[in-house]
Design a protein around this nucleic acid. Structure first.
Lengths: 244, 244
DNA sequence: CCAAAAGTGTTATTTGTACACCCATGC
DNA sequence: GCATGGGTGTACAAATAACACTTTTGG
C-alpha cells in the first residue's frame, strides 16, 4: 500500500473535516443521458478501489441544496444549466454502509478513528438530472479515477444504496414522462419523431404505436415541426422537430 | 423572565446536545385532517412564545427517517398507524431563521452561545400525513403549550418556512387526489358519497358535479357501497360507503 | 424494383363533461 | 305539501387505442 499516493489535501479533508459542510447530509445525483438508443447513467469509480457510486457531494453551510447539486454536477459534467430536480431523500441508517467506506479508505492506505465524520450516518438528498449526452464532459476529481456513462441496463455493482436510488429515480422519470418535456433535455436541439419515440420507449421499456405517438406529441404546444428534414440517413428523410 | 420555569431536562438537551440525533437534519410534518367541512392542519404553539410551527423533531442516529416521522407523530397524535409519506426536503440555508430561534430562547430566559447546535442550519425532510380527525388526541410536550387543529384557510403566522412547507404539501396532496385513496385516511370508516365529494371539493378548492363524481368514485375498485344508509339526518338517507 | 423506414387518417372504445328529473325525509 | 338534499341516466365531446396503406430513399 505504501506506493499509493493519496493527495495531501484529501488527507486533510477527511481526517479533519472543516466546517464548510452540512453534517451528516449528502447529495446523490442520478444523471440520465440518452445515446445509441440506450438510457445512460453517469457513474464515478473510486481510486484505489473497483467500486462505483453515483456522482455526489456535500452541501456548503451557506448553500441552498439545489445550488449544491448544481455545483456538484457542474464539476462532473461541465454543464452549468441542466434539468435538475430533487426527487427523494434517502435516510436508512445503514444506507451508507461504513464497511464500504472502510474498504475504500483501507485501499488508499488511510486509517481513521472510528469517530471520523466519514463514518457518520449520512442522509442523502436524491437529485434527478437530464442532460444532453453529447454536451457532457465527464470529469474525475481527486478521489475518482473514472467518471463515465453506463447503460442503465448494465449498471455495475454500486456502493451504498445507490442501486436503489437509481431505481427510484427511474420510477420518478417514468411518472413524469408525459408531464415534463424530457426530450428537451435528453435529445439534441433538433431531433426526429422516431428518435423521440425511441427515447420514450426506452424509458418506459415498452413499444409505442407510431401514429398515436406522433399525434400525442404533435398536440403538445411545446413541440414544433421544422421545415427541414434529417438528410443523410438511408430511407425516407424524417422531419426535424424542436422544443420551443 | 425569572419567574418562567424551564424544565431542567430541556436545558440539558439544548445546551449540551447529546449525540442521539442526526446533526443539522430535522423532520417537519404536515398533518391533514378533515372536519366541519374544512381541511385542518395540526400545529404546535411554543411555550413562552406566541408563535406556531408544524409538529416536527429530530432523527435518532440509529433510526430510519420514516420511523422518526412516525415516532414524532405518535407523540403528537397518539396514532401508531397513519398515512405518512415523505414529499420534499427543504434546504434553503436561511429557512430555519435563527432569529426566530433566538426569540424563542429569549422568551424562555435561556441564553446560549452562538455555536450551540440550535443555531445551526437545519435541512428538513417534509412528511405529509393524513389522519382521521376524530381519532387524534393532540399532545403537547415539554416545549409546547398547545397542539391543535387549525383550518387550512386560517393558518396563523408560522415560524421558519413552515407556511411554504404547508403550501408544498397541499400541492402534493392535490396531485395525488385521484391516485391515492385519500378518503380512506381522512374520513371515518363509513362515509357517504356527499361527504367524500365535499372532501375532494375542499382539497381542490372547486365544486364538482355530483353525478360525475359518483360515477368516477364508483369505478374505483377500492370503494364499496354498503347496504346501510346513514340514518338520522334530515332529508333522504344517503348510502354508506367504505374502502376495502 | 425492392427493402426499410417515415408519413398519414379512420374507426371503435373509453373517458370526461354537461345537464334535469325523481325520490326520501323532516318540518 | 314543500323545501332540502340524495339518487340516478343520457347525450355530446374529447381522448385513447387499434389498425394499413402510401411515400421516400439507398442500394
Amino acid at each position: 500500500m505504501e506506493n499509493i499516493k493519496v493527495p495531501e489535501e484529501f488527507k486533510v479533508l477527511i481526517s479533519n473535516r472543516d466546517k464548510r459542510y452540512v453534517r451528516q447530509c449528502s447529495i446523490d445525483c442520478v444523471v440520465f443521458g440518452f445515446a445509441q438508443n440506450q438510457m445512460k447513467v453517469l457513474l464515478v469509480q473510486w481510486k484505489y478501489l473497483d467500486k462505483w457510486t453515483l456522482p455526489g457531494g456535500f452541501i456548503h453551510q451557506d448553500e441552498p441544496i439545489d445550488q449544491a447539486a448544481n455545483r456538484i454536477l457542474k464539476e462532473r459534467t461541465g454543464l452549468e444549466k441542466l434539468y435538475l430536480k430533487q426527487f427523494a431523500t434517502f435516510g436508512d441508517p445503514h444506507r451508507s454502509r461504513s464497511k464500504d467506506m472502510q474498504q475504500m479508505l483501507d485501499a488508499m492506505g488511510i486509517f481513521l478513528p472510528e469517530d471520523n465524520w466519514l463514518f457518520e450516518r449520512f442522509i442523502s438528498i436524491g437529485y434527478l438530472a437530464l442532460v444532453n449526452f453529447d454536451r457532457v464532459t465527464p470529469n474525475t476529481d481527486l478521489l475518482s479515477s473514472v467518471c463515465g456513462w453506463h447503460n442503465l441496463s448494465e449498471i455495475p455493482d454500486l456502493m451504498f444504496d445507490h442501486t436503489h436510488i437509481i431505481q427510484t429515480a427511474l420510477g420518478t422519470l417514468r411518472k413524469q414522462l408525459y408531464t415534463e418535456p424530457v426530450g428537451k433535455y435528453l435529445l439534441p436541439e433538433k431531433f426526429t419523431m422516431p428518435e423521440l419515440q425511441k427515447l420514450y420507449e426506452t424509458i418506459l421499456g415498452e413499444p409505442l404505436d407510431r401514429r398515436n405517438f406522433a399525434k400525442k406529441i404533435s398536440s403538445m404546444s411545446s413541440v414544433k415541426r421544422l421545415k427541414e428534414r434529417k438528410s443523410g440517413g438511408a430511407h425516407r428523410a424524417p422531419y426535424l422537430y424542436t422544443f420551443i
